[in-house]
């Protein structure tokens, strides 16, 4: 079972690396969206610093949602998703491997580039470690919950907008706790409380989301 998990993880990572162009897209989107905020709100440093946590997190959330859409698409089109369900291993575990690979390919780069963007919007320096920590705890939750929505919409012609409609309301708790933690840190307060909540949400998502994703994939494949 562990070997099957590792095999899927490795395969998806190799596939992601072969398509480097697509790999960069969510990243560029993240940067562009964050750039739009100072243009719309004016470049005043204090204003930006005050709303920086919100800007960074909303942009990260949108980038993660857009990137989600491709999670099962190619596997659905070439039939490997069906083969995955036919294998003797529990589909929830295999799908978890796919989600993990997808997060490594799209979520991790967001975290790595976030310090640069924090500089763009003048986030106070002491909040930077907290921002990275919330992204590290929050984006896997987004991927896991989003995978349910992707699995439900994978068979549809134009699933992208629908996917956003389905999963964005479910992302609210992550957004609240993550932005709250960064806000606290920027104000010089302790961010431990919301970070614990984020960790709890991640644990919940890891345990509950994969079975729901597996059920959804079953339904979408008919």
């Amino acid at each position: 079972m562990v070997r099957a998990f590792a095999a899927i993880l490795g395969r998806d990572l190799v596939l992601a690396l072969r398509r480097r162009g697509e790999l960069g897209n969510p990243l560029v989107f993240f940067v562009v969206v964050v750039t739009l905020f100072p243009l719309a709100l004016g470049p005043a440093q204090e204003t930006l610093a005050r709303i920086a946590p919100g800007i960074l997190w909303v942009a990260a959330l949108l980038a993660a949602t857009l990137a989600m859409e491709a999670l099962f698409r190619s596997d659905f089109e070439d039939g490997s998703l069906e083969q995955l369900l036919l294998s003797p291993h529990p589909p929830a575990l295999l799908l978890l491997a796919k989600v993990a690979a997808h997060w490594l390919a799209t979520g991790l780069p967001l975290i790595l580039i976030s310090p640069l963007l924090a500089l763009f919007v003048n986030l106070p320096g002491q909040a930077l470690p907290v921002l990275v920590a919330t992204l590290a705890l929050g984006t896997p939750t987004l991927s896991l919950v989003g995978a349910i929505g992707v699995a439900l919409t994978v068979g549809l012609r134009r699933g992208g907008l629908l996917l956003a409609l389905l999963v964005l309301p479910l992302y609210v708790p992550v957004l609240i706790f993550a932005a709250g933690a960064v806000d606290n840190a920027a104000a010089g307060l302790s961010a431990a409380g919301p970070i614990y909540f984020l960790a709890a949400l991640l644990v919940l998502a890891v345990t509950l989301a994969p079975p729901a994703t597996a059920a959804s994939v079953r339904i979408s494949l008919g």
Binding site: V172, P173, F177, S216, I219, S220
Partner: peptide
């Protein structure tokens, strides 16, 4: 198919509604 997909979504929503409610209250 739509009904079964909707059923999954409704159940996911039920798990999420208390979490959303309390996180919003905290916020």
């Amino acid at each position: 198919t739509a009904a079964r997909a909707g059923a999954v979504l409704a159940l996911v929503g039920v798990v999420n509604i208390p979490i959303i409610h309390y996180s919003v209250e905290w916020w």
